[in-house]
Design a protein around this nucleic acid. Sequence first.
DNA 1: CATGAATGAGCTTTCATTCAT
DNA 2: CATGAATGAAAGCTCATTCAT
Lengths: 210, 210, 210, 210
Amino acid sequence: MPRPSNGDLRRAILDAARSALLEKGYTQLSLRPLARSVGCTATSIYLHFPNKDGLIHALIDEGMDLLHERLEAASSGVGDPEARVRALTRAYLDFGIEQSEYYEIMFMLHPERMERYPAEKYRKARRNLDLFAEALAGLTGRSVAELQLPATIIWSSLHGLVALLIARRIDIRLNRDALLDEAVEQAVRLAAGWRKPAAGPPPAATRPAP
Amino acid sequence: MPRPSNGDLRRAILDAARSALLEKGYTQLSLRPLARSVGCTATSIYLHFPNKDGLIHALIDEGMDLLHERLEAASSGVGDPEARVRALTRAYLDFGIEQSEYYEIMFMLHPERMERYPAEKYRKARRNLDLFAEALAGLTGRSVAELQLPATIIWSSLHGLVALLIARRIDIRLNRDALLDEAVEQAVRLAAGWRKPAAGPPPAATRPAP
Amino acid sequence: MPRPSNGDLRRAILDAARSALLEKGYTQLSLRPLARSVGCTATSIYLHFPNKDGLIHALIDEGMDLLHERLEAASSGVGDPEARVRALTRAYLDFGIEQSEYYEIMFMLHPERMERYPAEKYRKARRNLDLFAEALAGLTGRSVAELQLPATIIWSSLHGLVALLIARRIDIRLNRDALLDEAVEQAVRLAAGWRKPAAGPPPAATRPAP
Amino acid sequence: MPRPSNGDLRRAILDAARSALLEKGYTQLSLRPLARSVGCTATSIYLHFPNKDGLIHALIDEGMDLLHERLEAASSGVGDPEARVRALTRAYLDFGIEQSEYYEIMFMLHPERMERYPAEKYRKARRNLDLFAEALAGLTGRSVAELQLPATIIWSSLHGLVALLIARRIDIRLNRDALLDEAVEQAVRLAAGWRKPAAGPPPAATRPAP
DNA sequence: CATGAATGAGCTTTCATTCAT
DNA sequence: CATGAATGAAAGCTCATTCAT
């Protein structure tokens, strides 16, 4: 995969780094092989990024933006509240599987292992959580503020599936599509469980069944 | 932290490695600082483990056994099926949080990045999944065989929460205890959703509600 | 011995390695002391050679070329067949003694102990053997093809002397010049022994005297 | 090859070291693998030898004795002077090929690379050279004293062949037996060349042919 | 915008050797 | 006679990074 001669070297480096990251992981990604794979010298990388971490940060940024786009695109036109939640969860899982290179550096890296990481960047992740909270609000009739915890619960259940798939910890004999379908439906059921009670038993979220 | 002069060096190495792994990760864990922290030389590590990977494998083994003990201890005496599932999920989350050093090595390391990993060792992880499937069987009246997928769904939702907590990706303003309580209850609700229908609507596992 | 600041570092490394090899041998030659002796860091060596073996290979190459030059220079202008053989043998011995650093790397290192050795390089050694075979052809009236074995015999007898001298196994009370003179003359006599018989006894090469 | 339980550990170590030396060479021979191959611990080696070099020295001693036995056995009963020289050379080559493990440490190791080597031990090698000189004396009618140089010439030509064979520098397409036969006959011819002239042309050793 | 040369710190691993038992 | 535990030194090699050009 030779570097596009007239093209954007920064872009090429980012792309190569992204796929190398998936194979090697953050700490095993090294700049010289990376540079070789993209057809430039290691030194050139420093012309486009302050250092190795800066390169990763740029990728995380990109990934966060990409995920946001995907989630918005998937849910924007959907009117029905439940369908909206379903669309969001499905889009999240799809992103995690298709863009696992991004996903891993975005959500599976320890912040304390990346020195000099600007914590500010993680706030971009909040935007994505908010999309879930807003969809939940539409479905449950509750405020976004009081749905932070439920949204986190749903997000983490989706994250768990993606993370185990990426780490290859899921029994390969399970049908992956069935697994994803089921995960989506259960997430939707979970979401519906937080509906504001018109009349009837309070949802588990507020009070466990006696 | 001077080496316990009379003690078991192997034990001390394992303990030091476990906590070092949590803050450094696998590839950044290096043997010389590790040895220094435990009060021996790097060479001594090779008297007790064949190499760096062997050290990690020993930790994974220990962790798997420890988790199994915890899960069994938590659920063994519990008769009520729902309470049993609740106890299991709670024990799993507790393990992940209290023993996050073990947890990360066990479930958050990429197998392909650890060369020479004996695939056989991953089978120990299966035992733990089986505990969930068995508890589900008690609750739902289904066979363990047909509950592999639901058990995986529940496991992955628990894993997601633990993983995000360990990676410090959860908003710290959320009440952690409430989060865990909620996660447990939702897992139990999920589990109950797979109950074999006596008469009535088919469970979500086989066909989503229309 | 500070590094020649303006000069060719690669050249300096090769030179230092060549003499270090003579006193240390291949396996005891280590890169850090080598680098220190040449005034650079060990890492710098890897800028000029792929690895330790690559460095040695470069030396072997050089040595083979140098020997070839010497042999050709010594024999090129010599018309008389016997004088030609004499010049070749003398030049070979001289090379072995004067360039014993090269000689040892070229002929006294076990190939199986140098991993990753490109077998192709050994073909350069053949060129030198061919020079002997050709000179023998001129002297004996035989074809180069049927002189491979005699050429090898002569070569190995010269090699034996050089090797023992380098390894300091020859009694130091022997007059070295007399030894060399004698070796040359005996080699020439050997060579003459393979002369094609015009009429008379068959040469020893084809059938030992009864 | 497990260690003979009741047997001589020292003997087992020597045997294992001898064959390991051929594969690995002196500097790459390491004591722990050696100990493992013989079924004892590395520490045990130090009970029988002062250190690694001491082990090698013992082997060299053994080898020198063995070669001496072989040469004496081969030549002792032979009356005819020429046949005696032939038997000696043949025995030398055979030893070098069959006992190449011994041969290499005896003659192909640099003394200065083996620290603490007692130079005194090399004198054993002289005994073997003397056997050649004595046989030459029988053949040529000269004194042993004036045959030191010719004996060295013959020895070195034999050594050259053995050394190149051990180092695998000889073209494998050459017939090895023919090569050895030829080497023996040429050595005999060389030897005969030093015959004291009854009447006739002076031998090459004292004056080259005009 | 890009490079080649260079560096110092660091890595995992192996070595010969010692010592208390 | 033999061991297991331990060590300090050193090995080859790779790393992210810098600097003059």
